[in-house]
């Protein structure tokens, strides 16, 4: 009797093999359907050459109320024209950040320091932090970001000083109540009221709590903000938002023309278009700098 009771206590494990087989089939099927990197599109109007000869048709009458907003991206500076006038140039230093395959770390180089041979192959490719040298022919494929560091220059000869700004943990530049970039870390603390370069972004800072209108700046109880070189794209975005708010009634308030040199990298054009679209200028036209 006791022997029989012992046998009844033994629980039989369910047969998992069919479920395992099903999972083994499901996983490769799902893997083929996954998009690890999602692609999007950026729509554009047709390009025009600013030095192109005009057609025989008479040009349209100039509209005094038109904004005629144009952003020119040239070597070392960005310039904005609107209503026939121009704003002060925003000077920048271009910096390339590479992701090394050997140690998965990043390194930042000023591209003007690269020397090229007659075949266009770089003589001094970037060196990773672990001492390995990147492939001289393919190192450009490892560029993760092309940064434009804002420079303060007093004259044409002045090489300029890199401007710094406080950035959030999501890499957004902070602005103070006077709509100026915050340049000292101590000004970004729990209780302070700041904004970012997006519409109605004024918020109070806090540590460890998040709510509508309150931003948690901490990670693991410590502020996760950083002081970094200010991006010229951020300078540009700030000015474009200001122009948009001031000239919202213009008949061409949605339009912007982006002009660039022939050898401007596509990445910079896309970044500039992003900032223009986010600032409220969705109708983007492209043109080439005269003589470019």
């Amino acid at each position: 009797m006791a022997k029989n009771l012992k046998k009844a206590d033994k629980v039989k494990e369910p047969d998992m093999l069919p479920i395992m087989s099903l999972m083994t089939i499901l996983i490769p099927v799902l893997l083929t359907m996954i998009a690890f990197q999602k692609l999007a599109i950026v729509e554009i109007n047709m390009p025009e050459r600013s030095d192109a000869t005009q057609e025989a048709a008479p040009p349209p009458e100039p509209d005094d109320n038109a904004l005629n907003l144009t952003v020119a991206l040239a070597k070392g500076y960005v310039e904005i024209w609107a209503r026939g006038g121009s704003l002060p140039k925003v000077f920048f230093r271009e910096m390339w950040t590479f992701r090394c395959k050997s140690d998965n770390d990043t390194i930042t180089y000023d591209p003007s320091g690269f020397e090229y041979d007659a075949d266009g192959v770089v003589k001094n490719p970037p060196k990773c932090q672990d001492g390995t040298t990147m492939d001289a022919e393919k190192f450009k494929y490892s560029i993760e970001t092309i940064g434009l560091w804002t420079l303060l220059r007093t004259s044409e000869e002045d090489p300029g000083v890199v401007q710094m700004s406080v950035y959030s943990k999501t890499d957004s530049a902070y602005l103070n109540v006077e709509n100026e970039f915050i340049t000292t870390l101590s000004d970004v603390k729990p209780g302070a009221v700041v904004a970012t370069l997006t519409e109605s972004s004024s918020r109070k800072l806090a540590c460890g709590q998040s709510a509508p209108g309150v931003e948690d700046i901490c990670v693991d109880g410590k502020p996760a903000i950083s002081l970094k070189p200010r991006s010229a794209y951020d300078e540009l975005a700030k000015t474009l938002i200001m122009i948009r708010n001031r000239f919202i009634d213009s008949p061409d308030a949605d339009n912007i023309i982006v002009i660039a040199d022939d050898d401007t990298a596509f990445d910079k054009i896309i970044n500039l278009m992003d900032r223009a679209r986010d600032a409220g200028f969705p109708k983007i036209q492209l043109a080439v700098l005269q003589g470019g």
């Binding site: 692609l39 950026v42 729509e43 554009i44 390009p47 560029i143 022939d262 050898d263 990298a265 596509f266």
Partner: peptide
């Protein structure tokens, strides 16, 4: 991302001139 703007606008202009005027860039 490193392609020069000069190449980009020539390709764009050619697309437009040959009738493909609804142009988008993949990103």
């Amino acid at each position: 991302k490193n392609t020069h703007f000069g190449i980009m606008y020539k390709v764009m202009a050619t697309c437009g001139l040959s009738g493909f005027s609804n142009i988008s860039f993949a990103v």
